[in-house]
Design a protein around this nucleic acid. Structure first.
Length: 384
RNA sequence: GGGGAGAUACUCAAGCGGCCAACGAGGUCAGACUGUAAAUCUGAUGGCACUGCCUUCGGCGGUUCGAAUCCGCCUCUCCCCA
């Protein structure tokens, strides 16, 4: 595993920005493992496959023998990253951050070998800072330079608020790099500014400036920017079934890119897959990703309707809509009701348009489908 | 410090005393068509064992038979002037 003697070509594969290439060559030629930093903002509880672009890259570098340093931005999360935002981000409380942190680390462990990963919270150093330290840090950056950022400019134009504390975010992220003596920092292309601030701060501290590598942001499966509000992301906590189907819905134009950034298939194979029938390619893509996170067994369950027990604590006779909701096939009974009224619900192959129809727990399993991609086989209640 | 504007459902955005669970757009969901895609068309879209009931229009109080709409205070934001 200790073959970190790989060249810059392999190291920087798939990167969009590489600053500076010469620095990278130089540092790699020294032959020691590089300290590669990746910061995570624990501001939402779940990672999605968009984050995996970075994680897979880290995985590859880890396998080449480099030292991955994960920074959990618990202090920065309480500031809120202004990148890519035209609105003030809500600041999180410590309790919220702590809750998100656990789920993060366990999700990351699906991709990285945590035993060989250094993990820090940036509160380790920020909690110890005095106000005068903050001022000293703040004095290393100018307002003019901050305002060059398009996100801030846009917000000024659109009369959206900008908090002074938001100016501190890039400085904090950059300071993380100083504290861990970072060699290479990885981020999405939207992070370029923040990453460069790290370089700048290291130089000011008479430290060799970190190499900055950005990776492409992938769009959601519908082709638009991946975002919670569009509901087009694929959370890592998705079941095998959800994950498979969401990935399979990926926009045609993005299939090749997803293959490149989210699977470990060799480029030649990707090329031949995407040159063939696109439906087959999507099936393979969805299968690869699902297998990675859920294993062969998880993938195997995908094409069958899952078997679900009769809802615990529920009566043996339920209106259809309530049963569907209780089974988790819809979020609310109203939603189940609507689907049924519009002909989207079937029981044992029969379309049922009456959401109030009473369904009895019978002796054999009932096949219930909701819409095109939700289905379950409901088992009879187990006596006792 | 002074003056002005504003806060509505997932998002944007109408409504300005009863006809408001609240126009419209986007999103989402369902149906048709398809390639389990995209585009297009149709319908739905607060919750609920739903011909009815319950909870919503920044927060708290008040006026009224009745308030998203009027009044008071509070919180937050934007703009102009200093």
């Amino acid at each position: 595993m200790s073959t970190h003697a790989t060249g810059p070509e392999s190291f920087a594969r798939s990167c969009v920005d590489l600053i500076e290439r010469r620095d990278l060559e130089e540092r790699l030629s020294a032959g020691r493992p590089l300290r590669v930093k990746f910061g995570m903002d624990p501001s939402s509880p779940d990672l999605h496959i968009g984050h995996c672009v970075q994680l897979f890259k880290l995985r590859a570098l880890q396998q080449q023998g480099h030292q991955i340093v994960l920074i959990v931005g618990d202090s920065t999360a309480m500031v809120g990253d202004p990148s890519g935002r035209n609105k003030l981000r809500p600041q999180l409380t410590r309790a919220e951050v702590e809750a998100n942190l656990d789920t993060y680390v366990s999700q990351v462990s699906k991709v990285l070998d945590l035993g060989r990963t250094e993990v820090h919270r940036n509160s380790e150093w920020f909690d110890a800072m005095k106000f005068e330290d903050v001022l000293r840090l703040a004095s290393r950056m100018t307002v003019a330079r901050m305002l060059e950022r398009d996100t801030f400019q846009k917000r000024v134009q659109e009369s959206e608020p900008i908090g002074i504390h938001e100016f501190l975010y890039p400085l904090m992220q950059g300071w993380d790099s100083v504290m861990i003596r970072c060699d290479v920092e990885l981020g999405g292309t939207d992070q370029l500014f923040n990453l460069i601030v790290g370089r700048h701060l290291q130089e000011q501290c008479s430290m060799p400036p970190q190499i900055v590598m950005t990776l492409p942001l992938i769009n959601g499966f519908d082709g638009r920017k991946m975002s919670k509000s569009y509901d087009n992301s694929v959370p890592l906590t998705d079941s095998a079934r959800e994950m498979y189907h969401k990935v399979k819905r990926v926009d045609d134009a993005q299939v090749a890119r997803w293959f490149e950034l989210l699977t470990e298939l060799p480029p030649a194979q990707i090329a031949s897959l995407t040159a063939g029938d696109l439906l087959d390619a999507k099936d393979r893509l969805a299968a690869e990703i699902t297998r990675f996170f859920h294993g062969e067994a998880g993938l195997a369950t995908v094409r069958e309707a899952p078997e679900l027990p009769w809802p615990k604590g529920a009566a043996a006779r339920l209106p259809l809509a309530n049963l569907i909701q209780a089974l988790g096939l819809s979020a609310t009974t109203s939603e189940a009701r609507r689907a049924s009224e519009q002909g989207g619900v079937s029981v044992d192959g029969q379309v049922v348009r009456l959401p109030g129809q009473i369904v009895e727990a019978g002796a054999k399993a009932l096949l219930i489908t909701v819409g095109k991609r939700r289905a379950a086989r409901v088992l009879p209640p187990t006596p006792g």
